[in-house]
Design a protein around this nucleic acid. Structure first.
Lengths: 146, 146
DNA sequence: TTCTTCTTTAGAATCATTCTAATCTATTGA
DNA sequence: TCAATAGATTAGAATGATTCTAAAGAAGAA
């Protein structure tokens, strides 16, 4: 029996539509398929192309344009967090809680680091009239060596 | 009299060629022009397009391809640090010392934060066989409000 | 149903960046 | 000083990620 903070897969699949409605989005076939792909297997970091490839393999086809649209809608709705780390592509993180990342420079892979494990002390105040919307810590990993 | 860690502009301009030679790069007209544009006015965060636009305004024309080539050579030589922060374009930072960044979400502007002002405690150890090559802290600024 | 509004989509367009192959130019050695 | 050569520059094509466009398709309300 898997005991984790992530809800069981079945449940996620069952209320994909409810989740979408709660976010103010119509539960279309495409969006339901994307919710299942994204949230059906624990925390993930996916690119648009990866997700597109996954949905192509399913019965429900989703166009690349829709993958992009949906990822942005989900991000706006707070279901995803967008990570623009290595240059080029964007990653979308299904973990929207407080955490940071290991970034493997060689492969571009991202791995979560629980927020509590990184203590950022004394962040300077931003110029007045502005507000800190978040602090991202990226631990770059040089995966060479051996 | 300006007292800073950055060398005076004149000096930078004068020994642009020497600086290039020290990095193992031939001091061509184009590279000298780029060294002056980059290091002649204190710490900067430039994109390739910005630098290209600047050099177009000078007497020494530099092609966009050369701007890209040179930025990467300089980065490899340790003269610049590449920042892939907001998605899309890369920024090149003339400050290669220990520091972090404010990132203005609205404009994409970057501002240095001295390394000492951010205390990152207890970074978790990376998987064995790998090594931490750096820790980047990005303080995202939501410049809305007023 | 039927209408209206929101969605999806293929393909074109865009933006940043890299590649290619031809043309130059620093440097070296005669 | 001059030619040879290794390295540098360049225009333009190619690539990769993403966004746009305009037309056709589905959801929700009446």
């Amino acid at each position: 029996m898997t005991m984790s903070t992530t809800p069981p897969i079945d449940e996620v699949a069952r209320d994909a539509a409810a989740r979408l409605r709660a976010a103010g989005l119509r539960p279309t076939r495409q969006r339901v398929a994307l919710v299942r792909a994204l949230f059906g297997q624990g925390d993930r970091h996916v690119t648009a192309e990866q997700l597109y490839a996954e949905t192509q393999a399913l019965d429900v086809g989703v166009s690349l344009a829709t993958v992009y649209n949906t990822l942005h809608q989900f991000t706006r709705a707070g279901l995803l967090r967008e990570l623009a780390i290595g240059s080029g592509r964007s990653y979308f993180d299904t973990n929207t809680g407080h955490h940071h990342h290991f970034f493997y420079e060689g492969t571009g892979q991202l791995v979560d680091v629980p927020g509590e494990l990184v203590q950022v002390a004394s962040v300077p105040l931003p110029p007045k009239g502005t507000e800190v919307s978040g602090v991202d810590v990226i631990i770059r990993i040089k995966d060479g060596g051996c």
